[in-house]
Design a protein around this nucleic acid. Structure first.
Lengths: 239, 239
DNA sequence: AATTCGAAATTCGCATACGATATCTGAATT
DNA sequence: AATTCAGATATCGTATGCGAATTTCGAATT
């Protein structure tokens, strides 16, 4: 009776596939996406592709390039700053609420998430490290009991996946400090200390912001230089 | 060359029309929306209607009722609390940023917004009062210079429109305190006092939250009672 | 060699069509 | 009177088709 989504619609499948490719970097920034090509590649009609693209555009992953398809939006350091500013208050709120309302679930389910995060770093898989980080923060949204924060933060996460992916493709490893901070946050939540949890959450994000902003900026200067030297003009097409 | 949107697509037009009807209450909570009927009513094909409904669903204005169309999501007091909690931090942030980066625009464009708000109350038009309130807060998002806050808060605003509409259809007037608080916030922003602006912004939202939560709860008890006495079972259809 | 211009090719948005699945209705049965 | 069951109906998701607008590209011109 209560089937969440036993067979996700083609729209959702296509949406997820395109988004994954964007986050993984398979679809590079500024790459052109053509409905017909995507439809052929995924073996569906243009209809679900068009709808998926509309959702992606809605959330800022692609931008219109009229009569030339849509292009993957480039990662911009200013946008990153904005996103982190917003996440700072949103995650701060979710930590506070979690400490107020979600201590029990935090105690039961939290430690496993921390463990998985540390394993991911040890294992060295970029995808795992990203997934673990996303999962941890998503978990806090969930136990905060406020669907609205989760929704507000949701679009940011895909953006974060893109950023982390881009940086980690060069860095290979998230610093393990991250997981110490996560553990501290979790403890404050379990202890039921809203003020402390909020503060730790906010500083955690602020630190991450500094780290990633710096690395993204460095990364972009590199690639900008490379592009200049190659006199790259046209947009690459999706293969 | 840079045309924003000279001819909004049918999807957007349909989206706006449906959303307006939801916010105005023409489409009541739990009303069934059938693609065919909407298409006929708006004289377009089902295609743009389907896509508009997907966006509305995405943003929580309608919910799936498989094979029975979608229904307008009811306004729920708990959801309202969640939304206000989120808005409190989001609006607090935008006020702070506005004081840091947007004093100039605030000084130039702000007073007119306050004036329009007070006129709206004097004039007594519900729609105007809502629009003025939305405009004021949206203005702060804009001058905060952080697109991300604006995006995060965006879905909330339609929700607010629905709430304010429902309450004002009974109340007739927003309390004029609201606009005194708005004026105080604006002054802090113009004066370039981020801390004060943030604090005023947050308490403003907190107060509004209390006010509207109470009124919504009262309203819902009334209508619940009315419905009980009429033994309303089926969902109303869209006419 | 650079520029202009027009025809061909792209690409999209929207309409229409089809098939699958769930719901509804009403007659037959207990 | 309540229940069961099957056919009719409603509704959606996806595929395909069409027309309009824009870009692209190569040939003619300066």
């Amino acid at each position: 009776m209560a089937d969440g989504a036993p067979v996700p619609s083609l729209v959702e499948q296509v949406y997820e596939r395109i988004l994954s490719e964007i986050c993984e970097g398979t679809l590079a920034p500024n790459a052109r996406l053509i409905q017909d090509e995507l439809a052929a590649a995924y073996e569906v009609s243009r209809q679900p592709v068009q709808q998926a693209l509309m959702l992606l555009r809605e959330r800022g992953f692609v931008a219109d390039a009229p009569k030339r398809g849509v292009i993957v939006t480039p990662l911009d350091a200013d946008v990153l700053r904005d996103v982190y500013e917003t996440r700072e208050v949103l995650d701060g709120l979710s930590c506070r609420l979690a400490a107020e309302r979600g201590s029990d679930r935090a105690r039961i389910e939290g430690p496993a998430l921390i463990a998985r995060g540390r394993e991911a770093i040890a294992g060295g898989s970029v995808a795992r490290q990203i997934a673990a980080d996303v999962d941890f923060h998503q978990f806090i949204y969930a136990i905060s009991g406020n669907r609205s924060v989760e929704e507000a933060a949701h679009p940011h996460w895909h953006f974060m996946r893109r950023i982390m992916g881009a940086v980690l493709r060069v860095e290979r490893n998230i610093s393990s400090d991250i997981w110490n901070e996560h553990a501290a946050i979790l403890n404050a939540i379990i202890a039921g200390e809203p003020g402390k949890a909020e503060k730790l959450g906010r500083t955690h994000i602020a630190r991450a912001s500094k780290k990633f902003s710096g690395q993204l900026r460095a990364l972009q200067e590199q690639t900008a230089a490379r592009h200049r030297s190659r006199s790259l003009t046209a947009y690459p097409r999706v293969g």
